[in-house]
């Protein structure tokens, strides 16, 4: 039972962390290598909110807004000149990640910070005591997934974004403002990354490099998932599940490379990942 819960909740955490990256990659075909830095920014939003004595829950909207505003600036000044050079965009955003990391260090220092858990304690699940927060993370992942599905399928903005993904030329012909759609998409992606950073804080300590550890994993999952949230959920369950199983039964260290290695093999066999099926 506990293993099952571990698999499901770990996948949920991975899903939360990867959504921001997928949003940007799915619509803009750009890998935001500063994604880790946004997770860190989210984490420090949680730290700052707690330090000023506000409710830790307030960190969620704060991080979304801070992440989103940073995203608008990034899209405008760094990403926009690089849409035609996707590999350079990876590098430039990586450089931005360094800058953000150093700025955070200058402001908060390099020490590890801790935030109080949003939901402490355990809950009894079919006779197993299990971390309440991890279960909340599962709920959060489902809410995020459904919320995003609604945004994409149910709103005009989502329709426009999908139109840009499918056929950008035609979208332009119909008079859609593709530049604005790109900016908004980037903003939502980075806002979600900030949000994810807050949600991570009860699970990990906060330090200026906390995001980097999550970057490669989410990158691999997004590459495998392609462009849809459904396939991302599948990828998180399969690869994240494999990670938990390997970590539990073989070795935690091998567990650490499970996602990367499986992703590399999946992409070798099926270059478009799960989105082809």
């Amino acid at each position: 039972m506990s293993l099952f819960l571990d698999v499901v909740t770990s996948s949920a955490v991975l899903f939360i962390v990867a959504t921001g990256l997928l949003t940007i990659f799915g619509v803009l075909k750009i890998i935001n290598f500063a994604h880790g830095a946004w997770l860190t920014v989210g984490g420090y939003c949680a730290v700052a909110t707690t330090q000023t004595g506000l409710s830790p829950w307030l960190a969620l909207p704060v991080a979304f807004v801070v992440g989103g505003v940073l995203g608008i600036l990034t899209e405008r000044f760094i990403v926009r000149p690089l849409y035609a050079r996707p590999l350079d965009a990876i590098l430039a955003t990586w450089g931005l990640g360094i800058v953000i990391g150093q700025l955070i260090t200058l402001i908060f220092g390099r020490d590890v910070q801790f935030t109080p858990s949003l939901i402490p304690g355990t809950v009894d699940v079919f006779g197993t005591a299990y971390s309440a927060y991890r279960l909340f993370a599962l709920l959060a992942a489902v809410v995020l997934g459904l919320g995003f599905a609604f945004l994409m399928e149910g709103t005009r903005l989502g329709l426009s974004a999908r139109a840009v993904i499918m056929n950008e030329t035609l979208a332009r012909i119909l008079g859609l403002d593709t530049a604005k759609i790109r900016t908004v998409t980037f903003m939502i992606g980075t806002g979600l990354a900030g949000l994810a950073g807050v949600l991570l804080t009860p699970l990990t300590s906060v330090d200026p490099n906390m995001g980097v550890a999550w970057l490669v994993g989410s990158f691999m999952l997004v590459m495998v998932a392609g462009e849809s949230f459904g396939t991302l959920a599948v990828a998180c369950l399969l690869l994240g599940g494999a990670q938990v199983v390997v970590s539990t039964y073989v070795s935690p260290i091998l567990g650490g490379i499970t996602i990367a290695v499986l992703a590399a093999l999946i992409l070798r066999l099926s270059p478009k990942g799960f989105s082809r099926a």
Binding site: P81, D88, L91, A92, G95, L96, I98, Q102, L103
Partner: peptide, 20 residues
């Protein structure tokens, strides 16, 4: 220490964008 890294990072971003 941090300012130096900051400088390198900023320079790197600028170089990639305007001076590939």
């Amino acid at each position: 220490p941090f300012l130096w890294q900051l400088l390198i990072g900023t320079l790197f971003v600028l170089v990639i964008i305007v001076l590939p």
